[in-house]
Simulated assay, not measured.
Amino acid sequence: MSNRSLSARIERYPVRGAFVIARGAKTFVDVVAAEIDDGEHIGRGEGTAIYYRGESAESVLAQVEGAAPLIASGASRAELLTAMPPGAARNAVDAALWDIEAKASGVPVWRTIGLPQPRPLLTAYTISLGEPGAMEIAARAAGHRELLKIKLSGADGASGDLARVAAVRHGAPDARLIVDANEAWETLDIEAIAHQMAGLRVELIEQPVPAGSDHLLDKVWSPVPLCADESVHDRASLDAVVGRYRFINIKLDKAGGLTEALALVHAAKARGIGVMTGCMLSTSLGIAPAFFVAMQGMYADLDGPLLIEDRASGMRFDASDVWPPEPSLWG
């Protein structure tokens, strides 16, 4: 037995305005904050429920609380991978373990991983789904940012999404653009849309078809790289997207924590697949460990704290960049 105890709670954070994607709108996000206490140090982690996989804040909280005996018995991060399933609960506990180990040893997380001294990273900023005119206004307001991520729907056909992207391009003519279809293009001519997106200088298309329907991409030649999000969560789901997507979006809540996410980065690179590091709606505590995954990829989409009323003493965002987490925040 160890002297470590695990506790958790649900915390609610309002969304700034509204966060709208093809599956609906959010005005707040509930996250699960986990803490591991050894009597001298406290390690902290956070998870956001993967709602499209049936998770809720309440179910995640119950899973985290159920892991208390594991932590009390001294379970390691490696043991956690087999003792808990992938998902937001394991992410929160895994992060808390990384954090308390860093604080107890005095060795920062990046050094334990074997990464260079962290520097600020370019992060995408999300333009929520809406009518083209509203998205153009949002893009103009965010036009000082280098990389914008546009949420699309497919609900009104290819012409509707093309109009949205064209509007964003008009509002932010100098920005780099990536788009996220959120599984909504299953019935559309994806190859034709991709060619038109290329004309609008879109450089990445995320999850055009529903997870499990990725075979629809087998004969699609896209001039814009396709990126799997909902279709890949951890190493177990990676091989199914090989040859269909050129990138994967790694999110710690999907992978079940930094430990699995780091392994997934190496597995993806070994298969010639590029890495984008994303996040759910989350506070700075939730994206702090994801920063170290993003250091190893081509794209970072870590704007979760910018879209909500973040916790106090959060991470620093400056222009288009997110700065490394301070040890006082995480690890």
Rank of each mutant, 00 (worst) to 15 (best):
W323F: 15
E55V: 09
V31I: 14
Y299M: 06
G45F: 11
N3K: 06
L152M: 10
E183S: 09
R164C: 06
D239N: 13
Y51S: 10
L152S: 05
D99L: 02
V60G: 11
D253A: 14
L264N: 09
R271N: 06
E40I: 12
T48A: 15
M1E: 09
I42P: 02
A198V: 03
Y13K: 14
A124S: 14
G106H: 13
L80K: 01
P325F: 06
H233I: 13
V64R: 03
W185H: 04
I250L: 09
L262E: 11
L217R: 08
I250T: 12
L329Y: 04
L70A: 00
T259V: 03
A294M: 06
P69D: 01
A67T: 00
G272C: 07
D189T: 01
R164G: 07
G272M: 08
A184N: 13
V165I: 12
F292T: 06
H144G: 15
A83K: 12
I308W: 04
A211F: 02
C279S: 09
A267D: 15
P327N: 07
L204T: 09
L302M: 04
R44C: 14
P173V: 02
E136G: 11
P325L: 10
G272L: 05
R23T: 13
L6H: 07
D180G: 04
E79D: 14
V107D: 10
C279E: 08
I273L: 04
I308A: 06
Q296E: 05
R111I: 11
M84W: 05
W330Y: 11
L281T: 04
E230R: 05
L115C: 11
V241H: 10
E191F: 01
D229P: 06
K151S: 11
M135H: 07
G54L: 12
A124V: 00
I127V: 15
A294I: 11
